[in-house]
Design a protein around this nucleic acid. Structure first.
Lengths: 331, 331
DNA sequence: TTGTATGCGTTATCAC
DNA sequence: GTGATAACGCATACAA
């Protein structure tokens, strides 16, 4: 197994000192064209590239960003991860994907990211109690943190989110104009749900139409199965006359599960019997089978905002970006 | 901003040498209980944890694994990433997620992973020409590589795959027993398609029933839209009498798109007019709306196999694991 | 412009 | 069991 060539070896081969080799690989360093050419030539021959590990140790900057994720059920995570990795890589950064679960919690992840000296931490759709940081006594000295796609709730940690107030205003206005008057809302896992603020604003805007009596359903996870189970329990226990005429689900994957249950198991029609709204604009929701009315988050812009802050191009601060309502046949 | 404490600082504070500090953090090192206790105490007070960056440089092992992904359209990637990160983390490893795209190709990714000194590279559903390695002149000296969820096609690089032959044997037997005799097959992106070998074995097993005339459709990507477009073109150009009676799609996401198109746009019935089979057992395929017959890959086992090889627990070699047929209403 | 010394924080190896 | 020396590969500051 060939070992990687080092600057020293290239230096010897090129008949210069190893610092000259370093200079050849340092943009804007003072070095003559001649020796730079000579070094790069030998480097190519020996297949030398700088060891980023050693560089990181010396510069105290790894150009790695830890991305914490704790819920892989929502397919919406995937395009976000795609956009995120793409933009990070374009900025010369690379993502360390860290799975937060029962065996590896936030504290583990934070310590690990810190030990690896990452340049930043992105809490993607996840977060922890504010006290966790103070408990760890490493509030300072930690890599800068950012929350993506949910509210921060952590002091001094900025968030990048889709404007929930604007979104729900548009959604409720749309529903009201279509004539719906008996709204319901299905939320997912409690912890995340409050941080998304979708339910809060949903209730708020219906209240502005003097509609306060809103049925609240809840799913225990953000998955199609959980959405189906939740609506099943609701329909089974609620006589037809008392049912909602429109049900908003906290995200598309819940909505899709709910729609399947409503039509498949209960034989009801959407939107005639019950209209459905989701959130995220997941690809399948747009298909003929579903035609789900939903709201699209400004993914590219959200990711761009986080990456800009990580790069230091803009001051870290909470950013709220507008998305867009996508009306289809389910309402 | 507090800087991380170092072993040296802890040593001074504890009145020992820094090597004793290291020993306190090295399982099985020879050190008295007394000094170990003293060191750990001071370490806790100073909030010291070993710097993994420096450790990596010294040990020549980063405990990081690069994961290459080039297609984020298939929602099946997400549970795989979940399982993969979980098992890697359980083994003390962490995943570096690298997005292979037009701006960051395999060569970039390989060089980058090498420069970062990762312990291994997982090509997850992606691969490159065999010559890429020799072109780079770094065939040796590279971190060990593994291909996950597709054939390897690279000399000396083992793959971990679902047994396509077994899978297609089961699928075709099922279809034959149900009485279908005019099969079709929809493949996705050409590069991946051949590596999955699904079409190959599909044709092979139908041939054993003396059925050779198989309609071949192709989608340009693995997405619901592409699946819909492909089947739309086929149906539009094929008179009802000449159509297939069963269409197998290379994966579920293609199948779901195709089903929507078949029912929604053409008003055909599934499975009466056309039966559909997918591959992957994506959650939504199991819903009432779809009831998609499909084949489930042994995800946990596949990931376990790769991680075992990376850990060095088992010899690296291509592994082929059996999945299971999931029969639903679409056939 | 180029070479030298020193530091980054750890591990490996050897004396004591 | 403990301390000391060398090494990992690069970057920074300084001297020539």
């Amino acid at each position: 197994m060939r070992k990687r060539a080092t600057a020293k070896q290239v230096a010897e081969a090129a008949g210069v000192s190893k610092w000259t080799v370093i200079r050849a690989f340092t943009p804007g360093a003072s070095i003559t064209e001649e020796s730079k050419r000579k070094v790069l030539e030998m480097a190519a021959a020996l297949n030398y590239t700088p060891n980023l590990l050693a560089r990181s140790l010396a510069t105290n900057s790894t150009r790695q960003v830890a991305v914490f994720v704790d819920d892989f059920a929502n397919p919406q995570k995937l395009p976000f991860l795609e956009t995120l990795t793409e933009q990070l890589q374009a900025a010369g950064l690379v993502a360390m994907l860290i799975n937060i679960n029962n065996h590896f919690d936030h504290v583990n992840a934070l310590l690990h990211a810190d030990q690896r000296q990452v340049d930043a931490i992105i809490l993607f759709g996840t977060a922890f109690r504010d006290e966790t940081l103070t408990d760890l006594q490493l509030g300072h000295g930690m890599p800068p943190m950012f929350v993506l796609a949910r509210d921060s709730q952590i002091d001094g940690v900025p968030a990048v989110v889709c404007d929930a107030e604007l979104a729900l205003r548009d959604i409720v206005r749309h529903l009201y104009e279509r004539g719906y008057r008996r709204p319901g809302f299905m939320s997912g896992a409690a912890a995340l749900s409050t941080a998304l603020r979708r339910r809060q604003h949903y209730l708020e805007f219906w209240a502005q139409h003097s509609i306060q009596n809103i049925s609240l359903l809840s799913a225990d996870r953000y998955s199609a199965d959980a959405g189906a189970a939740s609506v099943r329990a609701y329909l089974a226990s609620t006589p037809a006359k008392k049912r909602v005429d429109v049900l908003m689900c906290e995200n598309d994957i819940l909505a899709l599960g709910a729609m399947d249950e409503i039509r498949g198991n209960f034989g009801l029609k959407i939107p005639e019997d019950i209209a459905i709204v989701g959130f995220d604009n997941y690809e399948l929701g747009g298909s003929y089978g579903y035609g789900l009315t939903t709201y699209e988050q400004p993914r590219e812009e959200m990711v761009r905002a986080v990456v800009s802050m990580i790069k230091g191009a803009v001051e870290p601060e909470t950013v709220t970006l507008p998305g867009r309502l996508v009306v289809r046949s389910s309402t």
